[in-house]
Simulated scan of single mutants.
Amino acid sequence: MDPDTVEQLRAAGESDSHVDADGRVPHGSSDDPNLLDFSANTNPEVPSGAARVFSAAFAASRSYPADDYVQFRTAAAEFVGCDPLQVIPTAGGLEAIRLAIQTTVRRGESVLVPTPSFGEYVREVRLQGGEPALVGHDEMLDSDPAPHAMAIVCNPNNPTGDCYDAEALRAFADRCRAADTTLLVDEAFLGFTDDPSLAGRTGVVVARSLTKLFGLPGVRMGYAVASEAARDRLATARRAWSMSEPAAAVGEHCYRDEAFVERTRERVGDERERMYERLSSRFGVYPSDAPFLLFEVTDTTVDDLLLTARERGIALRDARTFRGLDSHVRVAVRTPEQNDRLLEALGV
């Protein structure tokens, strides 16, 4: 991405929301079939049988899906450790985030938002008329939640990749509950780790996405988890038929494939460590618990690095569109063979 484009993206959202002229937050992903895409953090592998399950569900798509999604909710609840009744199906994790903010934040209310982090949080808060109160993501758990209607945590954080200490996060959740502040935890990448989910905890709304872990972003599988009054608000506001029949079937199938999840976690952990060591020989790399690595470019410009990688058939994520990152690039952790191509292209 050229510097003029980056500056336009930054300026379009009143200089601090990182949205483009259409109000959209820039994301990774390349649709160029000639490029190996390291800009999007989706699993390069999918569970076996997923295509078969999707095709088998096509016939059922001739009718509206059963709006209770019992099988999907049961599988999701078993995966994160909550009651199936607490699972609110959505078309992807971002819809779960919007639903949580929409049912919690009123016009003029303040929301604690981490930075640098997923740019959609600021946009969604503003769409509800709320006011984002930005705080460094590594300082979030030391913040006072009392003045705010909601606090948002991304765990592991995107784009830095680090997980919060589990005990400290639970303590922050308790403080939010005591202050009557809803805590929204985006766990889009937590499935790549062994860390426990906060799903089902009182006062917490968890947003989950299956699309990252199972490599199927186009299927749009996600859900929120909440309890008590928050659960009732989300269940009432959820659109009818909020997940397609094929998405629900594939989601259930994926969550039942425990062996795939374990293989993915092992591969990502091994490859992330190898990539971290190699990339650190040239760049300032952030420690990560996620399926991606963020690094600072110091020996050239981001534009030159992006261009060089592209000429060698690799798409990288320009991380300058994240608040406070002026010389950074993010790369996904893919298969060993694909990662070798990346490392060779970057000269490390």
Rank of each mutant, 00 (worst) to 15 (best):
residue 27 H to G: 14
residue 27 H to C: 14
residue 28 G to D: 11
residue 31 D to M: 11
residue 32 D to A: 04
residue 32 D to Q: 09
residue 35 L to E: 06
residue 36 L to F: 09
residue 38 F to A: 04
residue 39 S to R: 12
residue 40 A to K: 12
residue 40 A to C: 11
residue 41 N to R: 01
residue 41 N to T: 07
residue 43 N to H: 10
residue 45 E to A: 05
residue 46 V to E: 14
residue 48 S to D: 14
residue 50 A to T: 11
residue 50 A to S: 14
residue 51 A to Q: 11
residue 52 R to W: 07
residue 52 R to S: 11
residue 53 V to L: 04
residue 53 V to A: 02
residue 55 S to L: 15
residue 55 S to M: 12
residue 56 A to D: 14
residue 57 A to N: 10
residue 58 F to K: 08
residue 59 A to S: 14
residue 60 A to H: 11
residue 60 A to N: 14
residue 61 S to M: 10
residue 63 S to T: 14
residue 64 Y to I: 12
residue 65 P to W: 08
residue 65 P to Y: 07
residue 67 D to F: 07
residue 68 D to W: 04
residue 68 D to K: 05
residue 68 D to H: 03
residue 69 Y to S: 03
residue 70 V to G: 00
residue 70 V to M: 06
residue 73 R to H: 04
residue 74 T to V: 05
residue 74 T to S: 11
residue 74 T to Q: 13
residue 75 A to G: 01
residue 77 A to R: 08
residue 77 A to F: 04
residue 77 A to G: 09
residue 78 E to C: 01
residue 78 E to F: 07
residue 79 F to L: 03
residue 80 V to A: 02
residue 81 G to A: 05
residue 82 C to N: 10
residue 84 P to E: 09
residue 85 L to S: 15
residue 85 L to E: 15
residue 86 Q to K: 10
residue 87 V to W: 00
residue 89 P to S: 08
residue 91 A to G: 09
residue 91 A to H: 00
residue 91 A to M: 06
residue 93 G to I: 06
residue 93 G to K: 03
residue 93 G to M: 05
residue 95 E to C: 03
residue 95 E to S: 05
residue 95 E to Q: 09
residue 97 I to R: 02
residue 97 I to Q: 01
residue 97 I to P: 08
residue 98 R to G: 05
residue 101 I to G: 00
residue 102 Q to S: 08
residue 102 Q to C: 00
residue 103 T to P: 08
residue 103 T to V: 05
residue 104 T to E: 09
residue 107 R to Y: 02
residue 107 R to K: 13
residue 108 G to H: 07
residue 109 E to P: 00
residue 109 E to Y: 02
residue 110 S to D: 10
residue 111 V to P: 02
residue 111 V to W: 06
residue 112 L to Y: 09
